[in-house]
Design a protein around this nucleic acid. Sequence first.
DNA 1: TGTACATCAGTGAACGCGCGTTCACTGATGTAC
DNA 2: TGTACATCAGTGAACGCGCGTTCACTGATGTAC
Lengths: 259, 259
Amino acid sequence: MLEPVTDTEKTDATAAPARALTPRHRARTQTVADIIRLGRRHLALHGAAALSLRAVARDLGVVSSAVYRYVESRDELLTLLLIDAFNELGDEVDAAIGAVPVDDHAGRFTALGRAVRTWALREPASYALLFGSPVPGYNAPAERTTVPGTRVIVALIGILESAFRAGRLAVADAVRAEIPTALQADLDTIRAQFGLTVPEELAARGVLVWSALFGAVSFEAFNQYGPDTFSVPAELFDHHLAVLAGVAGLQLRASRDDG
Amino acid sequence: MLEPVTDTEKTDATAAPARALTPRHRARTQTVADIIRLGRRHLALHGAAALSLRAVARDLGVVSSAVYRYVESRDELLTLLLIDAFNELGDEVDAAIGAVPVDDHAGRFTALGRAVRTWALREPASYALLFGSPVPGYNAPAERTTVPGTRVIVALIGILESAFRAGRLAVADAVRAEIPTALQADLDTIRAQFGLTVPEELAARGVLVWSALFGAVSFEAFNQYGPDTFSVPAELFDHHLAVLAGVAGLQLRASRDDG
DNA sequence: TGTACATCAGTGAACGCGCGTTCACTGATGTAC
DNA sequence: TGTACATCAGTGAACGCGCGTTCACTGATGTAC
């Protein structure tokens, strides 16, 4: 499925042949993995706009045209890197959430946020590819990137929805904001799409918390704070997460046990 | 001050000679302005990483080497564009704030947020240069970009501080979060630096609101929401702003008039 | 188990392209006397 | 007001570089009989 697609090939993930894999096939799989790995390294060193098939070929120890056996074009390589990065982030977020009890919704939210930040700071170039400036002239193919690209928000929605169903998600009336009609309709569409029972106000706040989380991570990953402003950025981030949990409507578990 | 700097030149903004400007001097000023304008156009069409002196020279109708009369290098051009964009954003934010009465702190906050969003959506490439992925291999010279680069946060701090002094900035005790020691020290440094009287908790929330605001704008400017998810994105954004005003501790003016 | 053919990985040369930057130069503009 | 010299804008050629992509090819691996 990672080869240049021809008419006679199946393109879905189930296309792997039933018979045992040949050495050649295994070598191909390995080479594709190497290309992605080297591509990510190149990304980290020179940025997405400078990502070059020739450079990857050099690192791979192969003539530049050979890479076309594995990757249709430069854009195809970008797509592979995009999907790979989305999935790595998604895996780490899922693992972090999974390590916290299901009923500790605030804890799961914190785990999600920290996992995003940790990954972003470890892989700033990949993070920039996913959440930074769009790469000029490149359009991600939605049919391949949408599922991996929505894993974090889907996980966040899952946490909030299950907190709501457990009666542990609520907004103080005093701070409730108006929701105009068009937004209301959009939120209803989303709620139907995901089978959500959270009311619109909470859904809207979920979107805010989502974008605010990535705003905080982006500011740190993209060096928007000066170099010396925050000596322990993790403390700032954790504070933000705590406030954002409240914004989302999550009731903290450790400090109070009513509810 | 925009020429390649030589040993004998002054480099500060006050270096303009007292005598009347010669036609040649006026032409030079005009050409520098044209270079910045064309550079921004190139930025919008092809992105920062692809910004090219040769392309600017072509648009200017001049041979590529001629541009070196005005700009020391490609990085210097990037710096000029960065400063120009920061100042345009800063001007528009200041104008938007200035159109709202000084004592309407929440209104000023909303005006600031909307101005940032409006500018970002109108100038997505410049926005990406300022707040998106770092340009690989380029380091902005802090001594020239810090002042224009901090205008928005300085404006935001001004609004929050004056709201606090007017007794209209407060956080409900129920949602107060802990502030660990290192963060506390950092916030105290900032407070001293800007002569702020707002307590640490509110200062920390100011930072959160700042990054959340840009997170919301970035999600929209960088197309993180799907193309059809929100039919009237401005409604979503305004809702976010309203919630964020509450997060910052601002009391709304329209709905309630208690002190 | 052996042979004939098909598939595939990788080579090396070539295409046309754009880039940043330097350099010696010409001719116009500005300045000092 | 006029002349001599200095400054400056812009030219055109050249440097060495990297890029994506195509193409005909060689030799190794896999498959059908």
